[in-house]
């Protein structure tokens, strides 16, 4: 392997892995048991997993069609559209949370109408956690699926059309299976981002144990009072997400890539 590639690659590994090693080394291992059984930890973990998964499903449902529009349709102003929908990638998540308030809060453009009609207010609910996570994480999915769609051979879609498939059937039976590995990779990115989401969640959904307090929020607040306990919680989040990704990789991602 050439040194101009090897040396920076090793530096990158060190840069990414050493902080992790720091967490592991500094973790108060003897306290892990008591910390894990503390009330609220299991709840926060469950809430994190559930809301990140729901956010990923929502992103798939809305983001894959959006990626298709960006990659395949001949809509005018497509580049502008692409720039707009990737804004959450660069927007500080806290600002994203405030922006969600302005639209979906009970004083928001849409939320006000909903609140007046039904008395339902989205902020401070578990649904708000899912919405905040989706807002921040969906662009990751859209960008990677759009890339996969652009890389896929569009002539397969021509072939499907000559076989009587309309665009919807073509999308379902040809395009989507062809880009399945890209969709899977995007979903994993999206899930990971949603799992770690902090800023938009704490702003838009608030922080309440059992309802909206996800692991990152629990970690941050524990850090204020008990840094060692916060390290333990971070490691738990890390271990669970790694385990999930490895499991998916074995069962689903590889099959998708081979298909």
């Amino acid at each position: 392997m050439p040194a101009p590639l090897l040396v920076p690659a090793l530096l990158a590994v060190a840069f990414l892995v050493l902080p992790l090693v720091g967490l592991v080394v500094r973790a108060p291992w003897s306290e892990i048991g008591p910390q894990l059984t503390r009330p609220g930890v299991g709840e926060a973990l469950r809430l994190s997993l559930v809301s990140a998964t729901l956010a990923t499903l929502l992103s798939l449902l809305l983001g894959v069609p959006l990626a298709w529009v960006l990659a395949r349709s001949r809509v005018r102003g497509r580049s502008l559209l692409r720039a707009l929908v990737t804004v959450p990638l660069v927007l500080p998540p806290v600002v994203g949370g405030v922006a969600l308030f302005l639209v979906l809060g009970r004083q928001g453009i849409v939320g006000r109408w909903l609140f007046e009609a039904t008395g339902f207010s989205l902020p401070f609910t578990t649904a708000a956690v899912v919405v905040a996570e989706t807002f921040v994480a969906m662009p990751f999915l859209v960008v990677s699926v759009e890339g996969a769609l652009r890389a896929a051979d569009a002539r397969f879609e021509d072939a499907a059309a000559t076989l009587g498939a309309d665009r919807w059937t073509t999308f379902r039976r040809v395009t989507l299976p062809l880009v399945a590995p890209g969709v899977a990779a995007g979903a994993v990115l999206c899930w990971a981002r949603a799992l770690g989401e902090f800023g938009a969640t704490i702003t838009f959904a608030g922080n309440f144990p059992g309802t909206t307090q996800t692991m990152p929020l629990a970690v941050y607040l524990t850090l204020q009072r008990d840094p060692e306990a916060a390290i333990v919680l971070s490691l738990v989040l890390l271990a669970v997400s790694l385990a999930t990704l490895l499991l998916l990789r074995g069962r689903w991602l590889v099959r998708g890539a081979a298909g």
Binding site: R155, A160, R167, L178
Partner: peptide
């Protein structure tokens, strides 16, 4: 009339068989 509403068959240079089927 879009392609999918026509009664036609088409053979392409590099077969374009759907790889996932």
């Amino acid at each position: 009339v879009p392609a999918h509403q026509r009664s036609l068959g088409m053979v392409f240079q590099d077969h374009l068989l759907f790889p996932h089927l």
